[in-house]
Every structure is written in C-alpha cells, then in structure tokens.
Design a protein around this nucleic acid. Structure first.
Lengths: 317, 317
DNA sequence: CTGTTAGCGCTTTCAG
DNA sequence: CTGAAAGCGCTAACAG
C-alpha cells in the first residue's frame, strides 16, 4: 500500500510489517510514472549544463547533485562529445520543454546565458511557464532572468575580470592580449567588461588588435594566442576566457619560444582543479562553483530560503 | 491528439494542421508521466557515474549523452562535491532502483565496479531484473556482469597497466613506486595486475614497500607519493592510478626537490585533457573514453548492434 | 487507523 | 482515416 511506502500517513506497525514483507518477496518496485501522474508532481530535478565534459559544469553539477540526493537528472545542453558548437539555443529550449514534460520538481540552469534577444525571450517565457506549473527554477552561475520567478545565484564575472587585469597591470604590464569567450554570452561580456574597466581605470588605451573571441576550450586558446602574437608580438600578458583557454595559450606561447612568466604572463578564470598544476602556475580567478552549486541544489529542493529578492551574488572565499 | 504528436499513426494533413494549431495556442505540453504510464515505457535513459566532477566520467557521460539526444538522465553514484568517499555501494543500488522505478528505457553504468562480493551480487541481481523489465543495460568502461543480459564495453586496464610499466622499464627504471586506486575496485586490480605482469616479465622482484593504495584524486596522489618516498627514497619512477593522482605525485616530487623526469619519472592513466599540459608532460595511457561512451549510447538507444557475445573491449586509437 | 473508490492524462484497442 | 472507450498503477479523498 502506498501509505506505508510513502510514509506520509499513520499506519499500524503490524500492517506496515506485513506490507514490507510482501514488497520484499515480490521485489516490487513502485511505478514512478504512475505516482507522478496521480500525484501530479514528479520528484525529478533537472540540471542543465552546456557540456558535462567540462569540469566547470561537472563541478557545479556534482555539488548540486550532492544536495538533491538521489533524484537528479543532469541534462546536457550542447552535446559535448564531438562537435562542440557552443551552447545551441534550440537545444536549450528543447531540454527545458523536456523537463516541463516530465513535470520536474525543479530545474537548475548552470553557467552563462546566451544573449541573442529572441532566444533569451523564449527562454524567459519558458522559465515563467515552468514556474507557474510549480517547478522551482534556479539559475546557478547565471545572471537573473527578470520576471520569471526564477531564483538566481550569480558570479561576479565583471569584478573578477577587473581584478585579474588589475593584478597584471600592477605587475607592470601595459600591453595585454585578451582571449574572450564566444560572443553573445553573458559570461563573455561581463568578464570582458571587467577587463576594460581595469584598463580604463589605469589609463591604458585599448587596442582592438588585443582582443580576440574564441570558444571556451584549450584548442581555441592555442589558436587565439597564435593570432594575438601575429597581430602584436610585443604583448607581455595574455588574459584568457577561462583556465582551459589559458592552458592552450601557454602551449602556444611556449611553442613560440616565449617563457612564462618571464616573457609573457598568462591569466585564467575559474580556478579549475588542474590549474594548480600548470607550470609555472597560472594566475586565475577562483569561482565558488561548488558553493554555488550546493546552494542552488538546496534551494531547488526547498531546503534553503531563497536569497532576498530572489537574487544573490556568490563570492569566492 | 496523441496520434499526431507521436506521429506513429496515419493522420489527415488537415486534421494534423488543426491539432498543431491548438497545441500551439494553448502551449500545450505532453504529460510525460501519463504517457509513460499508458505506454508502459518511458524514454529516459540513465547514466550512472561515480563522480560527475571527475572528467573521466564527465567525458564518458558527454559522449553517451550526445548519442541519446535529448533524453539523458545522468545520475551520480557518489555525491562528488565535498566528501569524496569513493563509490558507495548502497548509493549505487539506490540509483539503480530509482531508474527501475522510472521504468528507464536504458541504463549505462560507467567506470570500474566494486568487487565486494555481496554488493556485486546485489548489483548483478538488480541488472538482471532491469533487463527482464525491458531496460537495456550497458556497461561502459566496466567489466562484464555475467548472466545479467547486460552488454559490456570494457577497457583493457590490465594491458594498459602492463605497457605503461614496460615503457618505464624500457627507460631503464628498476625501482618503481605504484600508487594504486581504492581497494576492491576492478579498475584498481586490473591496472595493478598489469603492472605486476610487466615487473615479472622483466625479472624485477616486487618490493611491498613500493605499492600504496589511495583514492583517485590529486590529494591522494600527493600523500601517497610522500609515503612512497619515505619508504624508499631511491625510487626512480612513480606509476599512478590515474592522471589526477599523477599530478599530485608530481607536486609532491617537486616539493621534495626532485626534478621530473631527470630524477624521477611519473606515469599516469586515462590521458585526460589536462595531462598534456603537465610540464614536463606525463606519460599516460590513453583510454577511449569518448569512443566507448558514444558506442554505449548508441547501444543503449538500440541504434547499434551490441557486440557479439555481448562483450567487447574498446581499444584506444 | 484501514478498506474502497474516483480519477490523473495518456495510449491503445475497437468500432465506425 | 477518426471517434469512443478501456485501462495503465498509483494517490488522495472519503467513508468506515
């Protein structure tokens, strides 16, 4: 009987005993879809990531998952694997619909959002609809989505970008290359804005040759660095969109015969586990991936009070 | 009407048109649980991983997912996140039951299995039951589970371990430390057996001081290396359970004032993306993570013929 | 505390 | 080709 299995109803100890034994003998397993249909809610929570092979998302997903104990469903946005075509808008919506179809109890969207206007509007509409249907929506490491009812735990990408560049400027650098992420992504834009703020603050004029866009992976960092060096061989520092890109940059610099950090300094973003082993070690901005993920997971489960106003910036320790 | 949405039934173009418009206007979304209940099958496929924050699993999961397009559900076995207590047996079974409850269309179990006898039997029983219920079960990077009906795509951990150690022996090493993974794991045992085979082949007597067990993470590699050096400071090579462990080993060696590879050689396993950036670069065994994952995904979807006999060893390229 | 009953929203027959 | 009807296995509400 459902009453004993769900434990949300008074049952005599003796009856419970009897039911439990029967369950055991027939190794009966509750039918999830039937429960979900009858109760009009499933206990699934969806986690949307760009690419689960990327530790940036893996770490957040792991933290979220550890908080929602045994009912996770991580769904990749882009396929990852072979063709890494960056976050594909259609797929993001498709996955959201899938979760909506499953009547998910909660959905956590991780990482930066795409800024393509129509797509952003479509996602916002979808989030609102999910919220109305009773699904808790949490944005983790992603900017707020106004008027959707979604809770947001954001990172201070702009501030991080600014501090990183200020650090390099403090070291005496005046010609800094910048390898940005894909265009039309909030993460890309915010980090770049922070970088520019730092330059402006210190009266360094921007040179358009010093910025190049790429993907968030190592190969892209390698190629972009080659391009940067071609455009201006006198650069003394390279700021990368994230740590993977920074690793690619290091490889390209080494191949070009430059020593790090003697000839050129390299800076990254995210502070992924492998960064500490880069030799010589990388300057990078630590993002509280685990902390944010854990908190997002708890909010998704309704076990933690959402931040006042529904929005909070999670700071590194 | 379900007939047009599922497209598995002849419908007049005009009727379809009418339905589609209505769907659009009401932004109607199919009720997943209801479909699953009525049809007695869901289209979910579960992916079990030890720790999604570990790129070893992330890469496989990504590849699997890219093949099952839009119906993945990655479920972590151990929580990952903070306390990395290795794969917990109970949780593995719990997740399997969860998938069984959801009437998953398929389940992919990734990575090594635990060798604890009662637990292994319990898992085998569960897999058999899943298979009987019509769920396709695929083991990816995991040894076969006899008589369960599960398909297995295994890695040649033993052969890889052997070749790795032979490579080091070929370089002239005679005193090799070995940092093994957690005990009672197939992966750990197979790699270690390969290592020992290589030693035996070349007439090198094993010294019990040279082997130490740890976890599959960087910190463990760091600590184990310190222990190894304490036991025998004259080691000239360290073979690690995987690349993360190898990174920790490198750090410990450097701190102890040893140069790599001049004083001590280090070897890893898995060939994860960051390994290439370890300087000087790490000798490591490439595991076909993506290839195996992709194939496992296709088999799970019924889009690829399972290997003859249900078992295949996936080889690196 | 416990037995009974009416749906949940779909898929799948079975007749038109 | 299309309408109608019978469940799928469970939960929740209602009487005992």
């Amino acid at each position: 009987m459902s009453r004993v299995l769900n434990g949300n109803y008074p049952v005599a100890a003796t009856t419970r005993e009897r039911v439990l034994r029967a369950v055991d003998e027939l190794d009966y397993v509750l039918n999830g879809p039937a429960s979900a249909l009858a109760a009009a809610t499933s206990d699934l929570v969806g986690i949307l990531v760009n690419d689960i092979a990327d530790p940036f998302f893996g770490i957040m997903a792991s933290a979220i998952q550890s908080e929602i104990g045994g009912r996770a469903a991580v769904r990749g946005r882009t396929a990852g694997g072979g063709v890494q075509h960056g976050g594909s808008p259609e797929r993001e919506l498709t996955y959201l619909t899938l979760l909506q179809r499953q009547r998910a109890a909660a959905v956590v969207l991780t990482g930066g959002a795409m800024e393509n206007a129509p797509h952003a509007a479509a996602v916002a509409a979808k989030l609102r609809k999910l919220g109305e249907a009773g699904t808790r929506v949490v944005l983790c490491g992603r900017p707020p989505a106004p008027d959707t009812g979604a809770f947001a735990l954001t990172f201070d990408n702009r501030g991080g970008g600014r501090e990183l560049t200020e650090h390099l400027i403090g070291l005496g650098h005046r010609r800094l290359g910048y390898i940005a992420g894909p265009e039309e992504r909030t993460t890309t834009r915010h980090r770049l804005e922070g970088h520019r703020e730092a330059l402006a603050t210190h009266g360094i004029a921007e040179d358009p040759r010093w910025t190049v866009h790429g993907r968030y992976d190592r190969r892209s960092g390698y190629e972009a660095t080659l391009e940067l060096l071609r455009r201006d061989p006198s650069l003394t520092a390279v700021v990368a969109a994230n740590d993977s890109v920074a690793m690619g940059a290091c490889a390209a610099l080494r191949e070009s015969g430059r020593r790090i950090p003697d000839d050129v300094s390299v800076a990254g973003f995210d502070d992924l586990p492998f960064s500490v082993d880069a030799v010589p070690s990388l300057t990078t901005v630590r993002l509280p991936l685990s902390e944010a993920g854990a908190r997002a997971g708890r909010i998704a489960m309704g076990r933690e009070e959402p931040p006042p106003g529904g929005i909070a910036t999670v700071r590194g320790s």
